[in-house]
């Protein structure tokens, strides 16, 4: 794990920024995102609908908190769990041979393929690094972190 305070801060900006951007694109088109979730053919229609309404906000709020340094461990853990879930979904979708857009970045989305796995893994590395980092520099409330 990388513990350098500047690098951890950059990681927070990058990861937070990516999720704010991804979330905002989806917030502006909730029905489009619901359809994207449905296209994965994993969830029933009603779950796709409610996920599409809530997930983008989880991404944006966690991203904002991560950049501000507010609840940063909790935010990083949420984003790590989301990225891990996306990873499973991507692998399952490739294995099932379903040819669809991931819907990760609204209309800027890429196809579900091996490159997407790589992107996901890089982001997962950043989020886990932030989660396990004890660096409390550049945070809004400089209190002792949650982790011992």
């Amino acid at each position: 794990m990388i513990g350098n305070k500047y690098l951890v801060f950059y990681f927070r900006i990058i990861l937070g920024g990516v999720f704010i951007w991804a979330g905002l694109l989806k917030i502006f088109d909730p029905l489009g995102f619901a359809e994207t979730i449905a296209n994965f053919r994993v969830f029933p229609q009603w779950i796709s609908f409610f996920l599409a309404l809530m997930l983008p906000w989880i991404e944006v709020i966690s991203g904002v908190f991560l950049i501000l340094g507010l609840f940063r461990h909790a935010s990083a853990l949420i984003l790590s769990l989301l990225l891990a879930a996306f990873l499973v979904l991507i692998v399952v979708t490739i294995m099932r041979g379903i040819d669809i857009d991931c819907g990760c970045f609204g209309s800027f989305s890429q196809k579900v393929d091996y490159k997407l796995i790589l992107t996901d893994c890089v982001l997962l590395f950043l989020s886990l690094n932030i989660f396990f980092s004890k660096s409390d520099h550049f945070v809004l409330f400089r209190k002792k972190g949650i982790l011992p």
Binding site: M54, V60, I61, S62, F71, S75, I78, I146
Partner: peptide
């Protein structure tokens, strides 16, 4: 504390999203 913060973020996001 970590779980409480996660629950807070999830509830806040859900309320705004819904």
């Amino acid at each position: 504390k970590l779980v409480q913060q996660i629950v807070f973020i999830l509830i806040l996001s859900s309320i705004i999203g819904l």
